[in-house]
């Protein structure tokens, strides 16, 4: 079957989709967006977390056919999504506010970045992405995309979370490397930076 939906602000069309395919498979194998990860495919690890019409879900448990006409934001579009949110001074609940996501053409020609002497040091990141790097919250990194999408959404709803709030919001995302301490650090850091940013902007 054919599925049309929007990913990171760009309309996408996936063809010849098998009816049992998940949104995760379509993103990874058909649209060249492998950032969402395939760690358990049973909704027990959160590595495939994306936003579907603004809501964090496990993309492994969404049937591809169910996303017809809907909006998806993946880790690949997170920086743009956060930027748009900051510029529009609020949540982009639909995901439709981004227009600069990956184009289909770009997606099809996807290859791992890092070539040409790049580590992506100049890449523009969302606050939560930067905080994960700065706090040492990334080791193997396989859980990172899902955690970022979940943590970013929590900070959107709850800009000053308590530690228990952070733990609850991220309790659907398994990490096997870090023991979560540095992930907590990262979320606290992003929240603090966001707050400081807000105060500065408020003062202008």
């Amino acid at each position: 079957m054919r599925v049309n939906f929007t990913v990171n602000g760009r309309p996408q069309e996936a063809d010849d989709v098998w009816e049992g395919e998940s949104l995760l498979y379509v993103l990874r194998e058909r649209l060249g967006l492998p950032g969402s990860k395939n760690a358990c495919e049973q909704g027990e690890c959160g590595s495939c977390t994306v936003r579907l019409d603004g809501v964090p879900v496990c993309s492994c448990l969404v049937a591809a056919g169910q996303v017809e006409g809907r909006e998806v934001v993946t880790v690949e579009g997170l920086a743009d999504y956060a930027k748009q949110r900051a510029e529009h001074g609020g949540a982009c609940g639909t995901g439709a506010c981004g227009s600069s996501g990956t184009s289909l053409q770009d997606a099809q020609g996807w290859s791992a970045k890092g070539s040409d002497s790049q580590t992506g040091e100049g890449t523009e990141l969302s606050p939560i992405q930067q905080a994960f790097i700065d706090a040492g919250a990334v080791q193997c990194g396989f859980c990172t995309p899902g955690l970022l999408v979940a943590a970013d959404e929590m900070l959107e709803r709850n800009p000053s979370p308590s530690d228990e709030d952070i733990r609850e919001a991220l309790s659907g995302n398994l990490c096997r490397c870090t023991g979560y301490e540095k992930i907590l650090d990262a979320v606290r850091l992003a929240a603090a930076r966001q707050e400081r940013q807000g105060i500065q902007e408020g003062a202008v």
Partner: peptide, 15 residues
């Protein structure tokens, strides 16, 4: 900081 950190937080690091 990790040299692969940015790639890993943007989903571009290829597993």
């Amino acid at each position: 900081l990790r040299p692969d950190g940015t790639l890993k937080v943007t989903g571009e690091f290829a597993y």
